[in-house]
Every structure is written in C-alpha cells, then in structure tokens.
Write a protein that binds this DNA or RNA. Structure first.
Length: 912
DNA sequence: GTGACGCACCGCTCTTTGGGGGCT
DNA sequence: GAGCCCCCTTTGAGCGGTGCGTCA
C-alpha cells in the first residue's frame, strides 16, 4: 500500500511537467464532468466547481463559469497583470504538446514577464477522500459488449480452424521434416509415447525457430507460414503452428491450441483490439511493444551479423551461471532474453515518454527488474568467466535483493537442458511479454493408463506445463477465458485443463449454452480427427488406476460417479480417447480446490458460504461441510434451496403441507408494511403494530401438489372474488377446464352455464396493477356445448361483421360520388354565369360537359353495387332519373340488375 | 498484493384486483 | 338505467449484483 507521504512525493515529482500535469488534470476533470449523471451527482459536481471557483477568487471575474469548470492549473497574480496569467479557457481549443517543462523553468519564464512572484498551483489531484467518479454500464452497453464478445469469439474460432488447416499442409510438413535431424525422426516409432520423449524434438525446434517481429504480410496465412518456415521465425502464432505441423509430420496426434483473447464480456473493461495478442498478425507487429519488445526483435536484427543473438545471450548467460544451478539455466536464459528485449523496450519508452503510459511498478515488474539486473551483471561481469558465479551467488544471497521467485522449480532433461518439463514457475514467461497464447497439444499414449494430451509450448521450450498457463496469464494481467484446441477442422474447449480456478473465469465467459451450441459441430469434427479408440490395459493396471482415481476424486458423489464411468470405460477394455478426455475435464471441473477468500464463494459454482446466501435461500440439508474458510464452514452449492411464500407456491400448483414450520422467516418489505398499516388504519385498527410484519418462507420439500375443491353439480369453485386464478394448468380446480377464447361470457350466460372469469396475471396500468383476464373456467362437461355455441355465435358475428363492413363501404362510395356530382354541378353553374366569355366558351363547356358526363357515366357503370335505385342522384340539372320496373333487367348468373332511366342513364346493381 | 468491507449505482423483481365518462 | 368500452397515465420500493475505493 502506498503511504500518504509517498503519494505526496509522487505528486511533487509529477508536478514537474506542466503540460503533463495539466493535461492529466483536464482529463480527470472532463471525465468527471462527463461521467456524472443525475441530480445527486450533478450536485456533487457543482460542489467541485464551487470549490474550484473559490480557489479562483484572485483570477479576473471575466471568466465564465465554464472556463472555471475546465480550468485546472492556475496562478494567482499580485497586481493587475492579466496578460501574464495563465489563460485557461475551453480545453478543447488547446492543442496539447507533450514536452518536459520543469516547474522551475516555467516559473522562471513567468517571472521574466511579470517580474513578480508567481505561484503556480495544481489542483488536479482530487482529495484522497473524494471518490473517483465512475459510471456503470447500462444494459444496452452490456448487450452490445456481449454481442461484440460473441462475434469476436466466432472470428477467433474461424482463425483457429484456418491455422489448423494450414498445419496439415503437406508441403509445409515435408519442408519441416527435411530440416529435422534424422535422429529425431524415429520418435513416431516410439510404442508408448511419453512427454519426456518429446524433449529432443521440442529442443531442436526451439533452437531453430524464434518469434520474430516483421511487418511482411504475404497475404494468406499459408504464405506467411511458409515465409516463417523460410526465415525460421515468425509470429507467436506462426511458430506455434509450425510446431504443430512438425508434430503432425512426425505422425504424432497433435492439436493447435489457442487462448482466445476475446473482447471483454463487460463494457469498458478492456478495449478490443488493444490487446497485444489481439489478432495474430497484429501480434507480431505489436511486438514492437511486446517483442520489439522481445529479445527476438533484437536477435532478429542481429541475425544479419550471422548469429542468433539470443543464442549468444543464452550461451553467455549459461556460462555465467553456477554449474550447480542447472535447473535454473533455461529460465535464466529466457529471462535474460526477455530482459534484453525489455531493456531495449524500456529504452524506447524512455526516449518517447509521452507515447507510453507510465505504469506503477508492481511485484512482477520488480521481480523482472531483479532478473534483468542479475542477468546483466552476470553477463557483464563474466563473459566467459566462470568465477562470476560467485558473484551471482552473492547477488542472489544478498540481503539487499529478494530471493528468487518462489516455486522456481524445474526439471531439465540432462540431455536437453533448454527444455523445461513440468515447470511450475510462472516466471518462465515474462509478464511484460505477455503469456503464451499459442501452443500444441500432443497425445501421448504412454502417459497415465490410457494416455493423455500433453501441453507442448515449443516456442518457449516447455513440455507438460499446463499447470503454469493460468499463473502466467494471471501474471500477465491477461486471465485466460477460453482455451480452444483445433484439429481436423474442428475445435474443442479445453479451458478446464488449464484453469484451476474456474470461478474466476466463469463470469468472463459467455453463457455456456450458447458456447456449447456453437462448439457442438466443431467438437464432433475434432473428435472424429483425434478421438481414436484407446485400448486400455484394464487387467494389468486396474489396481493402479483405482488408486489414482481415489486420489483424484473428492468427496462429492458426482465425482465418484465420474470416476465410476472412467473405471467402467476402462473395464470395458475400449474407450474413446475423446470420451476419456471429457471425463477428465469434467472431473477437473468438480474437483476445484476450495478458494481461500470469502468473496470467491459469492458466486462459486461448487461451494457456498452461508453468509452469502440471499434472502430467499437456505441450506437444505445443511451439510456436509467440505472445509472452512476464515472459520466459516463451506457447503456444497447443491445444498442451496430457494424458498417462497405459501402464495407463491400456490402459483406453481403446490401447497405447503400441513404442520410444516417455515424454513425461514424474513421481514416484509417496508413498502408492504406501510401499505398494510395504511389499510389497517383505514379499517379503524390504528392500535395494531405491524411494523414487525414478517414473511414465512417454505422450501420445495415442504410442499405437495395442490388439492383444490372439485367442481360439483356443474358449479365451478371460485375464490372470494368470484374468479379462478389460473397461474398455470395446475391451478385449475379438478373437473374444470380453462377456455381461452374471447367473448365466451355472453355465450355461457345464454346457455345458463356456471362459469368463472380466469385471471391469468397482472399488468401495471395507470400506476396500479390490474388483473388480466383471459377466457373463462367452466366445468368440463359443458366444454363441448359452450364451444359449439361459441362457434355458432362467432359465425353469426362474422356474418354480421361482414354485412356491416359492406354497408359501410357502400355508404362511403355513395358519399364520394355525391360529392363529385355536387362539385361538378357547382362548377358548371358558376363557370356558365361568371365567365365574361361564356358564349365564347360555350362550345368548350359543352365539350367538357360531355366529357365529364362520359366519365360520370363510366364511374357509375363501374359501381357494381348500390343499395337502391332511389339513391342515384340526378346527372343533369333539372332532371331526376326514374327507373321504371319494366325497364330493368336482371342477370341471374351474376346477380346484377341493370336499371335504366328514360334519359338513357343506366346503372348496374348487384343484388345481395 | 490481497482480502474485507462499505458505498453507490444499475437493473431486475415484486407488488397486485380502478374508476370516471361516454356511448349504445 | 344497465352494460360495455375507452381512457387516464406512464409505480416504485427493495433487493441483488457489480464496480470501486478505503483500510488493514
């Protein structure tokens, strides 16, 4: 923890750069101003501003409040030298430039101008007691983040499949084989392959292929891989892919494994694309920060001098190390390699301080720097001098330096010193370089009874280091979320193998149902490619395996079942390799160690502390106790039961059994108590104290199926409101049915059948909850009669509806035509009498009239329906059509009656 | 560095059964 | 006058989850 004095010192030192301090302060202030929402927050912001304002009392009053709000640094002037003051207007108008301006210099500069004492104050750092403003993500932002997460996952899956496919390329495999020394080619002939057998291949690969930073993109991944093969170096992904291709070329069953460095499921926690391993190709390029970064960048540059610099470094480092510390040789070499890279990297950082955020030193950094120092001193002191070892000994044993990283235990094969086997140290991977994202898994049939998949990180020369992946990821501040193995065009989630603390990564993963659905087809492909039948030697090793299982399996019954499955599979003599792996992963999932901190139990999928139970939860049965955390007993999560009130159980068609005591009694909400109190006051019971109103909760095990009164004599049992609450079908009284059709009430009434409105729920309307009714509940024997009557009624109603609709249509047509005729008549009258050239236009009008009459005629001809003949309006002025019966005709086929006036006008009417 | 704890904020859940006025 | 339909007005308190800061 940083002390206040340290903080003060830090502030003092940081205040040396005017620009940086100012910029930082502006950023903080703007962030605070922008992020706060709501009146309360607003009030706080106003307070902040007012505080700032009070400090500005010596500044000219002409500044508006906005200026003040955005102001950050200020100086108070004695006298009225306004020009010399630091104008702090809208920060958006500033073009900030990074530069190192010492406070003393700036102060001096200002002094030259004013020749007066100037005090520069920085008020950027908020009070230590003041809370940093933070804005919570909204549901929409979370949804968006989840979508991005899913899409990113799919992209990364596709990428993995692509890489896996290229690993099968025969040309690349053949090229790799041509490079392998003949002595290593016989590895495929090893009858029961073990992890230790891979050491020589891994060592050779590691010595020949390095991660390099280059910007050359050959287009396709295959081309890039071929180029990497040519240059003996490429991105981490390419080198890992080459290792997989090599293993496959050697006839080993190998998978390409990738940590899917996916965009966060939660908004704003990290920015997709900023990760140094965000995209494979970017990965290399970033290595200007990561591997530029990497020593291999250095070594790559030094390649032009004819030798791998890193190898030199390793050699020199190896020379300088004590002979007795062979176990640390490789790690030190890696550390040195990393350290050289990071030195360069840090040099870059120093030369461009503005381009990189200065991060506070953490434990890992200190550790790293220690290693760097050790390596450098060893190299400098004793290139070729073995006596430097004593210096190293002294260094490591020095009280001024902390001891080497804990758990730095490695097993090095004597014949392959650079390969680390079963390393348990996370320090093998540099935190600054980031943890490995790609490696291979090779199936070793000689491991355990039935064989298992072995983690092979050929890039770093690590075999069977699966236990370190999680630690290295955590050290690199990049906790793993998904580890996926690719083979045969498919993919399989093998995260469980590399993660011991599932509860830490579970909240960072997408919901498992979606993920499983996505992976299901890919898993089948992967299984087809790698899941060959394993011939177990059950009889030979049965005893040994049982013992192993007993060691692995924990107390839970589920795990025992799993182990039984495994044993059963083994007993059968044949087991699918994939099934065995699935069982292994499931066993791992169920044998997670107990977390050591209480918070971890809050959402743990396996264990629970009683203190984290929610209001409606209880432990039933309360046991067994699996362990203790800070004195609190740990129970299996499977013991957690959810409680409900009697009423809520009724909704599920269950009722609390007689003589059952509540499993838990909790207080009612204040709202409920208040409401009850007001009700009682209204009911003239003011003396009754209901402030301690409680709620009795029962568990599922205390309930039985609901027993409602049966319908008798055609009468439906109803509640006190004269209705039936139909929360589900189980809530229906026996002998009744729920008819969900609308307009059934009049039908039931007409038939004089007893019924009850069915209330199916509530909805909030106008600020109050309103019951929702849907259909009616009747006795089952009346169901058919009601439905028949309902059908008949509906038919009648539909016919009536249709008739009404047609009548309305006719009425509207009539209105339309009437309006047209009226308009035309008016137009004719007024045009005739108002126009001075009426006589001249007479001819035209006649033509127009004829034309219009013709249009009218056709419109009426088109009118196929009409209520009655009398509705026809006169076409010409002073003429009323008369349709005599003898002039009418009727077409029996089309049911159209044609009515004719003596004036020649006719109309067709469709008779209904 | 880590864990415990408290605070603040967001979002979900629970709650739960009108009444007046116009039209037919 | 009975019955039906529409409209009014957009609950809100509490709890759990989560993130963050502080302290030991």
């Amino acid at each position: 923890m940083r002390t206040r004095s340290q903080s003060q010192r830090k502030e003092e030192s940081e205040s040396g750069s005017l620009a940086s301090a100012s910029k930082e302060a502006v950023g903080k202030l703007l962030k605070r101003a922008n992020s706060r929402k709501g009146s309360k927050a607003k009030g706080q912001q106003d307070d902040d501003i007012s505080v700032e304002e009070s400090k500005f009392k010596e500044l000219p009053r002409e500044k508006d409040k906005r200026d003040e709000g955005n102001s950050l640094g200020k100086k108070s002037l004695e006298g009225d030298d306004v020009e010399g003051s630091v104008r702090l207007g809208d920060v958006n108008e500033f073009d900030w430039e990074d530069g190192d301006i010492l406070a003393s210099e700036s102060k001096e500069a200002y002094s030259h101008d004013s020749e007066k004492e100037i005090t520069v104050e920085f008020t950027d750092s908020p009070s230590t007691t003041q809370r940093k403003p933070s804005r919570r993500a909204t549901a929409e932002e979370k949804e968006l983040a989840e979508l991005v997460h899913k899409v990113h996952l799919l992209c990364l899956l596709s990428r993995g499949r692509l890489v896996d496919r290229v690993c099968n390329d025969l040309l690349i495999q053949a090229s790799l084989l041509s490079l392998v020394p003949p002595s290593l080619l016989n590895i495929a002939e090893v009858p029961r392959l073990r992890a230790s057998s891979l050491g020589s291949v891994v060592n050779w690969f590691r010595n020949n292929f390095q991660i390099q930073s280059h910007d050359i993109d050959k287009g396709s991944f295959k081309s890039n891989l071929a180029f990497a093969l040519d240059t003996r170096g490429g991105t981490a992904e390419e080198v890992a892919a080459l290792s997989v291709a090599l293993f496959r070329a050697l006839n080993l069953t190998a998978r390409f494994v990738s940590v899917l460095d996916v965009a966060s499921l939660k908004p704003d926690t990290d920015v997709p694309g900023c990760s140094d391993t965000d995209t494979p190709r970017l990965d290399t390029k970033i290595c200007s920060s990561a591997v530029a970064s990497s020593s291999d960048d250095v070594s790559h540059k030094n390649l032009t001098r004819g030798k791998h610099h890193s190898n030199d470094a390793r050699q020199s480092c190896k020379k300088s190390l004590p002979k007795g510390s062979a176990s640390t040789t490789r790690s030190e070499a890696v550390i040195y390699r990393d350290s050289m890279a990071n030195k360069l990297c840090s040099d870059k950082l120093e030369s461009h301080p503005a381009n990189f955020a200065v991060r506070p030193k953490r434990k890992g950094d200190a550790e790293f720097e220690l290693q760097l120092e050790m390596a450098l001193s060893a190299t400098a002191a004793g290139v070729g001098a073995s006596n430097s070892m004593s210096h190293m000994d002294g260094l490591s044993g020095s009280s001024s330096l902390p001891s080497p990283p804990k758990k730095l235990k490695k097993t090095v094969f004597p014949e392959h010193e650079s390969v680390i086997h079963s390393s348990s140290s996370s320090a093998v991977w540099s935190r600054k370089l980031g943890p490995p994202q790609y490696w291979a898994e090779v199936y070793c049939s000689g491991e355990t009874l039935n064989g298992r998949w072995i983690h092979v990180d050929a890039v770093n020369g690590i075999v069977d280091g699966e236990g370190n992946v999680e630690a290295s990821a955590a050290a690199g501040r990049k906790p793993i979320k998904y580890v996926v193995a690719f083979s045969g065009g498919g993919a399989k989630d093998v995260t469980r193998r590399y993660c011991m603390h599932w509860y830490k990564i579970a909240p960072r993963r997408v919901n498992s149902r979606w993920w499983d659905e996505v992976l299901a087809p890919l898993k089948r492909l992967e299984s087809d490619a790698t899941g060959s039948i394993v011939h177990t030697e059950a009889s030979d090793r049965k005893e040994m395996k049982s013992e192993e299982c007993l060691n692995v399996v924990n107390t839970t019954s589920d795990i025992t079942e799993d182990s039984n499955k495994v044993v059963a599979a083994q007993n059968s003599g044949l087991a699918n390799r994939n099934t065995l792996e699935d069982m292994d992963l499931e066993t791992r999932a169920l044998t997670e160690p107990l977390p050591t901190n209480q918070q971890a139990y809050k959402n743990h999928h396996l264990y629970v502390l009683e203190r984290w139970l929610t209001k409606y939860q209880v432990l039933h049965p309360k046991g067994p106790v699996l362990g203790y955390c800070s004195g609190h007993p740990v129970y299996p999560r499977s013991c957690v039961r959810t409680l409900q009130t009697r009423h809520k159980w009724l909704r599920e068609g269950l009722q609390v059994m007689a003589n059952e005591f509540p499993a838990k009694v909790v207080k009612h909400s204040k709202k409920f108590v208040k409401m009850r109190t007001s009700e009682l006051e209204d009911a003239s019971f003011p003396g009754e104290d209901n402030n301690e109103a409680t709620m009795e909760l029962y568990g599922r095990w205390q309930t039985e199926p609901l027993r409602l009164p049966c319908a008798k004599n055609g009468i439906v049992p109803k509640n006190e409101r004269g209705q039936v609450d139909v929360w589900s079908e189980k809530c229906l009284p026996p002998g009744t049915v729920h008819l969900k059709f609308p307009r059934l009430v009049p039908v039931a009434r007409r038939l004089e059948i007893d019924f009850a409105p069915a209330m199916v729920g509530f909805e909030f309307r106008n600020g109050r909850s309103v019951p929702i009714f849907e259909g009616i509940v009747v006795c089952a024997e009346f169901k058919d009669a009601i439905l028949a009557a309902f059908a008949e009624e509906e038919e009648r109603r539909e016919a009536e509806e249709k008739r009404r609709f047609e009548s309305e249509a006719l009425s509207r047509w009539f209105q339309l035509l009437s309006s047209i005729i009226t308009r035309q008549r008016l137009q004719n009258s007024y045009v005739e009498f108002s126009s001075p050239n009426a006589s001249d236009n007479l001819h035209i009008d006649e033509i127009n009239n004829k034309s219009i009459d013709h249009k009218k005629q056709s419109m009426f001809d088109d009118l196929k329906s009409s209520q009655n003949a009398a509705s026809i309006m006169p076409i010409r002025d002073h003429h009323e059509h008369v349709f005599l019966i003898e002039d009418q005709s009727f077409d029996e086929e089309s049911f159209i009656r044609t009515k004719r006036c003596r004036c020649g006008f006719s109309v067709q009417v469709e008779e209904l």
